[in-house]
Simulated assay, not measured.
Amino acid sequence: MVFSTEPAWSDIDEAFTQEFQNAVVYADFQQETVIHEGALRLLANGWVELPSGRLLSPDAVHHVDTHPERES
């Protein structure tokens, strides 16, 4: 039997990672508390990675709006 030395998780992780250039991260349902606005990566494990490298826990994030409305 042959076993790979490469972890399978990295392939799965990249397949489910999504990147957004314009998103808003909210901490509450009412959308009153904004945690982050701008580019981000949504990781397969539910964590949100910001451009600075900081990670936001799934426990801290209520939802991510990937199509924020633009006010005129």
Rank of each mutant, 00 (worst) to 15 (best):
N45M: 09
V48R: 05
E14S: 07
H62N: 14
R41A: 15
T33C: 00
S57G: 01
L56K: 03
T5Y: 01
L43F: 05
V34F: 03
L55F: 14
V24T: 14
G46V: 07
F3G: 03
P68C: 10
A15D: 10
D59H: 04
A23P: 02
R70E: 08
Q30P: 00
F29W: 06
E37Y: 07
H63D: 04
E37P: 00
E49K: 14
D59P: 01
I12K: 01
S52V: 02
A60D: 15
A15T: 03
A15H: 07
D65V: 12
L55K: 11
R54I: 12
I35Y: 08
D11Q: 06
E6A: 02
F3M: 06
R70K: 13
E49L: 14
W47Y: 12
Q18R: 14
G53S: 10
L55D: 01
F20Y: 15
L42I: 14
D13A: 15
D65F: 07
S52N: 12
S4P: 02
H62R: 13
N45W: 09
L56G: 02
S57N: 13
T5Q: 11
Q21K: 11
P68D: 02
P7K: 03
D65A: 08
V61T: 04
F20W: 03
E49Q: 15
S52K: 05
S4K: 04
Y26R: 07
H62Q: 14
Y26T: 04
L43A: 03
S72I: 09
Q21H: 06
H63M: 11
V34I: 15
P7L: 03
T33Q: 14
V2A: 09
F16C: 00
P58I: 06
D59N: 09
A60F: 06
T5A: 12
D13H: 09
F3C: 01
A60Q: 15
E19V: 05
H62E: 04
V25L: 02
P51L: 08
G46Q: 10
H63W: 05
G53H: 12
A8G: 00
V64A: 08
F16N: 11
V24R: 08
F29R: 13
M1C: 03
R41C: 03
D65K: 08
V61W: 05
D28S: 05
V2D: 12
N22Y: 04
Q30S: 13
E37T: 15
T5I: 04
Q30T: 02
L42P: 00
S4F: 07
L56H: 09
W47V: 09
T17K: 13
S10K: 14
H67V: 12
F3P: 00
Q18I: 02
D11W: 04
N45K: 10
Q21E: 07
R54L: 08
E49C: 10
H36S: 08
P7S: 10
E32N: 13
E32C: 03
E6R: 10
V34T: 14
P51Y: 09
V25C: 03
R54F: 09
A39C: 02
S10C: 05
A44D: 14
V24H: 01
E37L: 05
E71V: 10
E32W: 04
A23Q: 04
L40K: 06
V25Y: 03
A44K: 13
F3D: 08
P7N: 13
I12D: 05
V24D: 00
H36Y: 09
N22H: 11
E32Y: 04
D11N: 09
A27V: 07
E6W: 01
E19M: 04
R54C: 02
E19C: 05
G53F: 09
R41K: 15
L40M: 12
P58H: 07
